[in-house]
Design a protein around this nucleic acid. Sequence first.
DNA 1: ATGGTCGACTCTCGA
Length: 261
Amino acid sequence: MARFTIATFNVNSVRSRMPILQKWLSEHHVDALCLQETKVVDEAFPEADFRDMGYRCLYRGEKSYNGVAILTKEPLDGFAVGFGDGEEPEGETRLLRGRIGDFCMVNTYIPQGKAIDHADYVYKHRFLDRMKSLFDREYLRSEKIVWVGDMNVAPTDMDVTSPEKKREHPCFAPDIQEHFEDVKSWGFIDLFRKYRPDPGEFSFFDYRVKNSLERNIGWRIDHVLVTPALEKHGVDCWIDREPRSWEKPSDHTPVLASFDL
DNA sequence: ATGGTCGACTCTCGA
């Protein structure tokens, strides 16, 4: 048995967040860190900084937007970029997969959608369809899979501050919640909710809401989802708000989960 | 709480 800790963190630019990442990783034992919104082309990804901290890097990004990475202490046994379904290539900067032994990791940055009547919202729904197809095509329900990332969906009224005012928000509308649940129903359990059953814990605090962290006005849209085969090994899953209060924070917080494998 | 603020990159978009 060995303790394995994975974290997911929308960094909102990996280059602007390097000081926070260095401090945070020096203070926490993290075996795998999945980043979203790295906002950097591959040629400029700060791989050396992570290597100095003992991590190997898998990354795929583009200028200004999107971009994902998986940083691991141990080398990945296998990895893939994007869906590999022959459809729109934009998924390539929103989806990475890797594996350490029989421990499978999927890191996603699901499209935000912009508005429920916007073309981007159609793309968000299609992205969820492609997620379910990916699990059908590439995985077995009996495998140890952790699907993490910025999902841009707050699943229930427990996961936002004022649910009644958000029914038409692209990250909270009933149709996107139902679609997200449908993908999860492939075989995933919300690990954070298992260990933290009470409402009012969030992973995103909008910069535009004054003192959102202190007032705890936020959204829980960053998730750690696991198959039952991995849930059995779960130890804890939690949100670390501290980096959100440091200098030059991301608008998101890390979400961590640990397993005894 | 969507008014506000960030980040990247041009002055505006995306979140």
